[in-house]
Amino acid sequence: MSNLPGYRRALTGTQPEYLHPAYVSSRKRAPAQPLVYLPHTLSEITGPVFAPETVNVKACDLTRQHSGEPLGERIIVSGRVLDEDGKPVRKTLVEVWQANAAGRYRHKVDQHQAPLDANFSGHGYALTDSEGRYRFITVRPGAYPWGNHHNAWRPAHVHFSVFGPAFATRLVTQMYFPGDPLLPFDPIYNCTADESARQQLISAFDWESTIPGHALGYKFDIILNGREATPMEK
């Protein structure tokens, strides 16, 4: 078998270190030993493929999963999944989950004293199209307090899980909103050293995807590791 090209690695500082002491939960869950560099083999350049028939309209519209409309500000979150060369990542699975407009997750562990919304489950999924595009209709999630430190609050965010073309491109991240005053104080947002890498997590307000009279648009592009140009080293 000829050697197939692997995927590029992150530049220093553009991905979080595992131990980020300001995020208290990382202290006992971060490996102490350095990672072992693994050149990519067939096992890493392949990955799960999800079929288009697993996706339906309700999965992309979080405001239509129940009999009534959820409370809160309706928003459109859309964007493209691209690789580092700007090429669209087609037919890849994007999963999202989030708190409701009051800042409460529909999850038994979430005991925040904010109301649940019977019309909002807070999760969805989509496959990107032939241009790498995805689009969700949802409500803007609320900020919520958490126990990391005194008076800790998470900025409003939407969780994203993306597969990409290979095991090596798997990414889980969070999308934030422009101008959120909580961002400078959030140890999770600030876990990545490189400032421009952090800012890439902030969606952009987007007139173009706004639906007049109905919902404001936010754009969030997700970039996955690009492909090496040369074959894998021996």
Binding site: Q15, L82, E84, E95, W97, H107, Q200, L224, G226
Partner: peptide, 23 residues
């Protein structure tokens, strides 16, 4: 054009609501 891969963030404590469909 060279873009840079989006930085990772934790799945947090509530991932099951978004991920359990594929368990």
């Amino acid at each position: 054009m060279t873009l840079r891969a989006t930085t990772s963030q934790t799945v947090g404590p509530f991932f099951s609501i978004g991920l359990e469909r594929l368990n």
